[in-house]
Design a binder for these strands. Structure first.
Lengths: 238, 238
DNA sequence: TTTTGATTCTGAACCTGATTCAAATCCTGC
DNA sequence: GCAGGATTTGAATCAGGTTCAGAATCAAAA
């Protein structure tokens, strides 16, 4: 009974087509201008067919974010696999994250939009669950890096905190920076240029504060940026 | 010629009414369910009148955020005015920010939504400018606190970085935490409970990393939380 | 007090775009 | 070749933001 299987495959194929096309349309015309009817037409299907895959526009956007999350996870995987000390690899995660956001501006915007309550609530629970599930490998990677750091003696296990909790700080720094960078006009108003360089400096300062060995002292903006550039080249652009 | 003045006042009064009511409706029924026609009706005005004040729904939301920003600034003012060392006051800013977000969950969600590109772009430029302008005092407060810390010898001026840039790290930590907290289900999935306590710990670690005197060593979660609680009580709930 | 012209208010009509669903079409197994 | 279920279609429906022609109001002038 290969029939059902083939149908299943065709359906998945079509879903991919819809998502790919949606990504292109968003890239070309902005998140604002994505229209369900136009998307369907552009894929040479009827509107109704589109709704067999996605329960709503929001649902589609969450699905799209999920697709992007795949490539996002890869960044973390690379950082983890890099041949370097745990501290440098933790720093590399921040570098990779920024690098990825810069290379995929639409994805970064999409994520921000999708996680805003109004959108999130309108997607199917299964879809939301699935997106969160796709992020799971990221947490697993971080967790294992922290575990390795503790095992290796680079980081002192802080009292009752478990691995993920220890890594929350750098994570928040990155998230917060993305969020500020997306707020058009805000950083300019504060006369903050080169936000990425500053993020890297602050990550290093925080890692120092955590006592993550080997300490980088002093933390020079220029040197930090140079290290970030090197990591970007060696780890993420090969 | 007091006529024009009176009209002006009435108009402002009405604008306040619209915004207040909008805030209430959002609190009661969620951001999603705010409808322009219903809002106007509930204020006993016609839809069109509402549009004499706000060029679009998005514009109204930005205006609403602006109103909230007023009270937000107050938090920073209080932290700055607190009788304590510069480091404790910087920490107090983080505590106040979290406290405020907790007390005004709708505001926090609104801010997140408003700054998403799709909404931001649809508000009038003047309105956006105005919202950013309302945030200016915040940056000014932070800037002056950092300046004081340097002058007082608590903080070493880092090379070419100016005041605001030095304060970017703690700011990102707070922003990032808000952003993560809003992502329903994410922190649970990562088994991170008490995110606020962790934020405070990380702020202290970062301040240590920055060499902001007097250092807090070691940074104990329980002690940090106790300090935060005390600050909350003494500085923000009086 | 009436007139007048401007200003403001009104809300039904308009418009865009997401969503639905009855009919048409396509399968597949007999 | 055909019956009946599954899938696809796209025009119709619906929701809700936005507009605008006319009604109402107002203030100054006559």
């Amino acid at each position: 009974m290969g029939t059902a299987e083939r149908k299943q495959k065709e359906k998945e194929e079509r879903e991919r087509l819809f998502l790919t096309r949606a990504g292109e349309m968003i890239r070309d015309e902005g998140l604002l201008n994505l229209q369900m009817a136009r998307l369907a037409e552009s894929c040479e299907y009827a509107t109704g067919t589109l709704y067999q895959h996605f329960s709503s526009k929001e649902d589609l956007l969450v699905a799209l974010a999920e697709q992007g999350a795949h490539r996002h996870v890869d960044v973390f995987r690379r950082a983890l696999a890099w041949q370097a000390g745990t501290r440098d690899r933790m720093f590399a995660i921040a570098v990779g994250d920024v690098h990825f956001a810069r290379k995929n501006p639409q994805y970064a915007k999409l994520i921000q939009y999708v996680f805003a309550e109004a959108v999130w609530e309108n997607a199917l629970p299964e879809r939301r669950q699935s997106l969160l599930g796709h992020c799971e490998p990221i947490t697993e990677i971080i967790r294992s890096l922290v575990r390795e750091a503790i095992y290796h003696g680079d980081l002192r296990a802080g009292g009752s905190l478990h691995e993920m909790e220890l890594a929350l700080g750098p994570w928040c720094l990155c998230e917060g920076m993305h969020s500020l960078v997306h707020t058009q006009g805000l950083l300019e108003k504060c006369r903050i240029h080169r936000p990425e360089e500053l993020l890297f400096v602050n990550v290093q300062l925080l890692l120092n504060g955590m006592g993550w060995q080997p300490l980088m002292e002093p933390v020079e903006p220029a040197a930090t940026q140079a290290l970030a550039d090197r990591i970007r080249r060696d780890v993420f652009e090969s």
